[in-house]
Design a protein around this nucleic acid. Structure first.
Length: 341
DNA sequence: GGGCCCGCAGGG
DNA sequence: CCCTGCGGGCCC
């Protein structure tokens, strides 16, 4: 028996799904979209299962990652100068082991076909993390659709999505540059080629004045409005139809979410902006947006192993990920390292 | 697993 | 300067 929360969630999802369906109908650019889903496709699914590497074979992360005798070294993941400390200055001097994490990253890279890993794996975002195009709309020169980063600092460094925490980047005058799908709102629907997205605000991040919790996220405690700058930016994008860059993160509950890290999924158009009752205890209103992918972009990778998603139909075109013949791919780009000093 | 707090960047 | 925020690390 579903709880009230689950029922509300299902209702919200259904509402969002229907809205996305209506978008598909009245838009003329559905060719790419209708190629993907229903696709009878009786292929028996060869079950690739890329020989999942055991994450136990940690290499000595100290200095030399000698044993790279793998077919999986599609790109050089081992930054030579990164001793053991990588992401946080706070960890400086501590004995943290990101070894297992690195291995997981490798698995992720080989798990989708046309993806490319950026050389900016996101260390500190300070010295080598200055975005080349801080305020730019549309595609970023040199960054392909499907580029993957371990964390948000990498997205920022490549000018795809500048904020390190916020999901929306942009301004109310010109619109949003980019957004991040990270599963912050469970009633958002992601169909890959189109999705719904919840805005910002309406959450008490500071706690009480006496005891400021200073959280970066918190439960909804009031209505979201379009006065919020981020929401206003997306609403403006809905008006002017400028393309918005989209990244999907590992926290997103969707068959299109990367298993780990963040992936640039190309350009979308904000088709609709509205408010509805959100999925929260008191039914506060949230700002919602429906985005639709622009045609002519590489197909999205689909999670093959586990798809939590939301059930019901969704045979999720199992063969898609490996059926794409255009994979090509082992990118050996990676000119070792260009960030001298 | 969940709770909590941190620095950071970006826009008024 | 103020404020916020779909990260992320740490501690429990």
């Amino acid at each position: 028996m579903p709880s009230a929360y689950e029922k509300q969630k299902a209702a919200n999802i259904e509402r969002n799904r229907q809205l996305l369906a209506s978008l598909e109908l009245d838009s003329a650019t559905t060719d790419l979209f209708k190629n993907k889903p229903q696709k009878p496709k009786p292929t028996p699914k060869p079950k690739p299962k890329k020989a999942a590497p055991k994450k136990r074979k940690e290499p000595p992360a100290g200095g030399d990652e000698g044993p790279d005798t793998k077919a999986q070294c599609v790109e050089a993941p081992a930054d030579p100068e990164a001793g053991g400390v990588r992401r946080s200055a706070r960890n400086a001097g501590k004995s943290v082991d990101y070894k297992a994490e690195q291995n997981k990253s490798i698995k992720t890279i080989i798990s989708f076909d046309h993806g490319r890993k950026s050389k900016n794996s996101g260390e500190l975002g300070k010295d080598n993390g200055e975005p080349k195009y801080p305020k730019r709309y549309g595609a970023i020169p040199g960054v392909e659709v499907g580029t993957w980063w371990q964390g948000r600092t990498g997205c920022r460094a490549d000018s795809i999505h500048a904020p390190l925490v916020a999901g929306i980047s942009g301004n109310a005058e010109e619109g949003a540059y980019s957004i991040a799908l990270s599963g912050g709102y469970e009633d958002d629907v992601d169909l890959g080629e189109a999705f719904t997205y919840t805005g910002s605000g309406g959450r008490d991040l500071r706690g009480t004045k006496d005891k400021p919790k200073n959280l970066r996220t918190a439960p909804q405690s009031s209505d979201q409005t379009f006065d919020n700058h981020f929401n206003a930016a997306l609403k403006r994008s809905c008006d002017n139809k400028r393309p918005v860059r989209v990244i999907r993160g590992f926290k997103l509950h969707s068959p299109f979410a990367p298993a780990e890290g963040y992936r640039y999924d190309g350009l979308y158009i904000v088709e609709k902006a509205w408010r509805e009752k959100g999925l929260n205890a008191h039914g506060f209103l949230v700002c919602k947006f429906a985005l639709k992918r622009m045609p002519g972009q590489p197909p999205l990778p689909v999670r093959s192993d586990d798809d939590e998603s939301d059930s019901e139909d969704e045979e999720h075109s199992d063969g898609v990920a490996d059926a794409e013949k255009e994979n090509e791919a082992v990118d050996e780009d990676e000119e070792e390292n260009t960030d001298s000093a």
